[in-house]
Write a protein that binds this DNA or RNA. Structure first.
Lengths: 217, 217
DNA sequence: CGCGTTTTCTTACCCTGTAAGATCCTCAAG
DNA sequence: CTTGAGGATCTTACAGGGTAAGAAAACGCG
């Protein structure tokens, strides 16, 4: 939907607007389609015009990451149990990423240390610390959780991201040799993976719980 | 170290050799430097020559992923406890990835379903299944473990991968506002992250263990 | 030797990010 | 109203990317 503009008319661009258009474009047509000219055309503008709002393409990508990550993170500073805080942060992050599978690669390739993120981390650290984890453990827990969520989303989305200049999706269509890999083949048929995230998240949190009690004795 | 060749002399290329040279180049100069022409020059050959061994660049990248992933996976079909199998698989994969940080992004962007991988998965599934996990759980465990390892390596390497056309490494150098984020700041100073992986891996495995016993009752 | 096959090179095209500068729009000062 | 001034937009241009098409060179076998 390239916006039409009569010659010489202003477009009324905004950094934020550009970022959102970029996210939208990536969502619809994949990361490969996210070029400056393409995005410009989407906004009814020439590619170079974007450079008045954004220093370069990396900054654009960073901005998009920031944009998408900030859509998550509702865990406000409540006094809920640390388990619940972790769970809610992880779930929210995972669901946001699942809603924008095409940009998952970008998020993985850049930590996006925004102040919003740091507040979230601080909040979780505090919960963990006052729940009896030592600081080192608390940091390990938070980092591990982040890595876990990203990794999970990455493998579950299959991800065709930066590569495969073709369309998104389409998935792998190779089938599995039942003779050599009986369990794998069988699993592939069932594969109701809806609960995998919760399962894994619970396992991880339980594991953290055990680590805490273990280190306390 | 571009190999010199007198005009018209053959270069003796091999698909495998090209892949290894590509991995080497990516290791040394980063993913951004891994272009067809560059890689060709490295092998003393024009870019187009590579296309007689490799259909396109995506295939090259896939091959490199396969190459690096196959360097891990020593977990042979022993009758060790499932915990040990998982641990050894995860550790080996993690250490291989840590040895090639520049290609971590590639690995995350593509599952690399090779027969070697599938054997490994089948082996782990079997261990888990005969240890009392139901099939669904076993699959969840394996996928979760993979995602966990990749995610962990990704966040720990910081990753400057595809982006930042400059050199690899250099890291982030921003410091943290101690007023707003006291715990984070303190943690950042200590941060002896050497044991984080083992900590997290143990937590995860413990969690799996609990999930199994829970579902058995 | 000659011929067919395999490997390598040449050229060309279109796409990308982006530096430099021209051009146009808008709006306030005279 | 005219006139700048400053900000927003467009034009042009360049280096580098992936790769399609075909020429040219080297090899192996008869």
């Amino acid at each position: 939907m390239p916006v039409k503009r009569t010659r010489g008319q202003r477009a009324g661009l905004t950094r934020q607007g550009i970022l959102e258009a970029g996210l939208d474009l990536a969502d619809r047509e994949g990361l490969a389609a996210l070029s400056m000219r393409h995005l410009g055309a989407e906004l009814g503008v020439e590619a170079m015009t974007l450079y008045h709002y954004i220093p370069n393409k990396d900054a654009l990508l960073d901005g998009i990451v920031e944009c998408v990550v900030s859509k998550a993170i509702p865990p406000r500073f409540t006094d809920a149990a640390w388990q619940e805080k972790l769970r809610s942060y992880a779930s929210s992050l995972a669901s946001v990423m699942a809603a924008h599978p095409n940009v998952v690669p970008l998020v993985m390739l850049q930590p996006a240390v925004t102040s919003r993120n740091m507040e979230t981390m601080e909040s979780m650290l505090q919960s963990l610390y006052s729940a009896g984890f030592d600081l080192q453990q608390a940091v390990d827990v938070v980092y591990t959780l982040t890595g876990f969520v990203l990794g999970h989303v990455a493998v579950q989305a299959g991800i065709q991201g930066v590569r495969s200049h073709g369309r998104p999706a389409e998935g792998r269509a190779l089938d599995i040799d039942e003779e050599r890999y009986p369990l794998l083949a069988q699993a592939d048929k069932v594969s109701e993976r809806g609960t995998r995230f919760e399962f894994a998240l619970n396992a991880l949190i339980t594991g953290f719980e055990m680590a805490r009690s273990a280190s306390r004795s």
